[in-house]
Design a protein around this nucleic acid. Sequence first.
DNA 1: AAATAAAATTAGTCTTGCCTAATTTTATTT
DNA 2: AAATAAAATTAGGCAAGACTAATTTTATTT
Lengths: 218, 218
Amino acid sequence: MNTQSEENYLKCIYRLWQDRGQKITPTAIAEWLGNNPASVVDMIRKLTDKQLIVYDKKKGVELTPQGQKDATLIVRRHRLWEVFLLEKLGYHWDEIHDIAEDLEHIKDATLADRLDKFLGFPEYDPHGDPIPKANGKMAKRHSTTLADVKHGTLCRVAAVKDTTSAFLQYLQKLDINIGTKIQLIEKIQFDGSLVISIAGGERTTVSQKFGENILIDM
Amino acid sequence: MNTQSEENYLKCIYRLWQDRGQKITPTAIAEWLGNNPASVVDMIRKLTDKQLIVYDKKKGVELTPQGQKDATLIVRRHRLWEVFLLEKLGYHWDEIHDIAEDLEHIKDATLADRLDKFLGFPEYDPHGDPIPKANGKMAKRHSTTLADVKHGTLCRVAAVKDTTSAFLQYLQKLDINIGTKIQLIEKIQFDGSLVISIAGGERTTVSQKFGENILIDM
DNA sequence: AAATAAAATTAGTCTTGCCTAATTTTATTT
DNA sequence: AAATAAAATTAGGCAAGACTAATTTTATTT
């Protein structure tokens, strides 16, 4: 059984691996968690001893099969709780992440599976991230962003990359949710700004950074 | 904000106060929590500094108004989660206590109230204990036990005192739940054993200790 | 290749919350 | 009241998980 802190490190490593696919360094982990690199080095030793990660100076940190399994379960719990908080308890989009951050550490052999069943086996969480199944498999993550498509394209918001409340509240203000249709009208050469039409409405301009955090379907 | 450990002490003190109404000593707390008395003394100092308890050698430990408020909220959260686990996730009577023990420490300003609403504002938890309301008030606790009534009395199981799985599983085996009707046929003078009829069925004999852990309505 | 900057690591410290062992205080017997 | 037992307290320690400061290693520039 892993401690809460160990779980946070595992989840962090998993996220960095999924997001970037590059070498995962102590510094990257430290930044992500807001911890001191020295603390990360301590934990790397601990997780290595527990055979949940392998650390090689050249290759960085990698999850072992067991580490992957553990990390996937944490992500599964996190995303299921997010669905619960939003759908059943009526929380807003931007409130659920932090609470799920605590709930994900509740340890009980059947809790995740029961919750999954209770929620009707959702495929995606409220941010559009796929929820790992009990067997560890999960749906594909969306990878195309609004900033990637050609002008004129009509797309559907499938997920968001950034889950901070600053971003989510901005989306709320623009009335954008998972499923909202957005048409990219024009890309501004100068700074990558995007002129879009939300749900067939008036033209709005958003930044490139904004576009890169919206994952889409077509 | 209190730590998880502080919350456990507050809850313990609250329970001892409710259950026994006597002087609450460090030793009693240590026994209840399974901790060393020396650790209890440390925590008494800490909670005193935080003005959540008052400790007087003569009177023992007492909760301050703020301590009572905090403790009540923890109990509220615990009991609401128990209802959730049983009713929504389909756990058994004897499985919910330990999981709620972790869930009760999840801190979010509106979580308890939202959960309360989602569950339909239940008055009692699955063990028959009253759930404190958002304002701290709660229904009366049942106080008459099966061992207290006169032979011949027909009563209704309102709550259980003991919530260990050993006891709850025994109840399960006897097919006794909250609401089950029990008639006390006879009290055996010798050792206080009780001859009862469960839901109008055949006679069964149970111990005095058993009877003292069944709280009843009439 | 040397100089500089960045990253990683080590050493030592702190807090929380627990422990054991020893001591002091309080209660109970005889 | 003295002796004994029980309870409370103090002192000192330990592990987890964080930190800072100093040092070493690795990368990047010039």
